[in-house]
Design a protein around this nucleic acid. Sequence first.
DNA 1: AACCAGGACGTGA
DNA 2: TCACGTCATGGT
Length: 231
Amino acid sequence: MNMIKKIYDKLLKDYGPQGWWPLVEHPGSNPTKSGAIEGYHPGDYSLPTTDTQRFEICLGAILTQNTSWVTVEKSILNLYRINSLSISGIKKLSDGKLREMIKPAGYYNQKARYIKEFIVFFEKLDGKVPSREELLSVTGIGPETADSMLLYAFKQPHFVVDAYTKRIFIKIGLIDKKANYDEIKKLFEDNLDKDYKVYQEYHALIVEHAKRYYLKKTNYGKCPLLKLIKK
DNA sequence: AACCAGGACGTGA
DNA sequence: TCACGTCATGGT
């Protein structure tokens, strides 16, 4: 009964709180030291606390589209080092310079455009929380990016569905191969408390779990959730 | 050396 | 609505 919740409990028990979304600067981090590995803040659901941090999360959400997070970290640190990890900082950059900084994350031409367009949208918010529809109206923001922003930057209870989520839950038989984004999103939201902290943790745990068992197809069979399902 | 990474857009059926 | 090509660097 409620496998969705049961799986969440198991993943949290096995892996512990993940501390998403990583932020270069937060109490306890040390960004000058090296990477943003220290950007994670497990158990602290108070972040982000500033508009600059909110923007950093939104920026990361765009940069990580179909791209590994390590290359996104490089891009974000590139901006950080030239003191441009902020709206005002990016606005000062030429288009070419912005493209150069985010190059490691790939698709740098379109992502640079997406970022510039998002900045206009973000400034118009003037501190307000955007609706999902408003976010989706911005070029470059699709369902997953919108939900990532809502969930991690604005602490709104929107479940984030990514490629890993589909892969895992198709494998264990809880969703159909042809289920679309909104159907999968609804499955999770219908079976969990409407709590942004739970949604944040669950999505992060799914990514962690996928990195352990779902990078290579030959490993799918080792997924411990397969046994959990059969009971 | 393919394959894929914390997807979205534009196009044409 | 939905399948398909495109965008691009970098890690495994």
